[in-house]
């Protein structure tokens, strides 16, 4: 199980690095899907709270290191999201299409709400643009559409259980 967590951490870090380099070369202004968040949440929803929050914390911290956001900003948001996704373990039916789409749609909405509240408390008002602008709405859509594909890849790489019902272990 620890091996899988380690692989997931490496996967999430690679995704963050790809987002910040390869996608930047394609277009610096591109609306980026939050691939690392999708992996964190899908992994957490099948593996539980501990794995979810640890993976969320590490992925958020890596993002903090690579952006202008203050350290702790993304880590806080991703830890909370990972924790909440982990709570859902053993409580959901894992339909391979509908579940990832709805789950990631709601999670991305929640991510922006948490980001807005955190920015309101810790940053000055100019640092963060308005909640749910066009770019953020497009990201929510993009994340939701990519979620089944990521779910499929995680399942086939055996990082998450392959059964439809959540594992009882």
């Amino acid at each position: 199980m620890r091996n899988k967590l380690l692989i997931s951490i490496i996967l999430v870090l690679v995704l963050i690095l790809i987002q910040s380099t390869v996608l930047h070369y394609i277009s610096p202004d591109m609306i980026l899907p939050d691939l690392s968040m999708i992996v964190v949440l899908l992994y957490a929803s099948r593996k539980g709270v501990m794995e979810g929050q640890v993976l969320g914390f590490i992925s958020g911290l890596a993002e903090d290191f690579l952006t202008v956001s203050p350290p702790g900003f993304n880590a806080l948001i991703k830890t909370i999201l990972g924790f909440m996704a982990g709570i859902l373990k053993n409580k959901l039916i894992f339909d391979p299409v509908l579940f990832p789409v709805l789950f990631i749609f709601l999670a991305t909405l929640l991510k922006y709400m948490l980001a807005y509240v955190t920015a309101y408390v810790f940053l000055d008002s100019d640092s963060f643009s308005s909640l749910f602008n066009n770019r953020q709405l497009l990201e929510i859509l993009l994340n939701s559409l990519l979620a089944p594909l990521v779910y499929f890849l995680l399942k086939h790489s055996k990082l998450i259980p392959t059964d439809i019902w959540s594992s009882q272990k």
Partner: peptide, 15 residues
């Protein structure tokens, strides 16, 4: 030389 940019849509940055 520019190495990369933002990792998410919350903040824009150049590395």
């Amino acid at each position: 030389t520019i190495l990369g940019g933002k990792t998410n849509n919350l903040f824009s940055s150049i590395i």
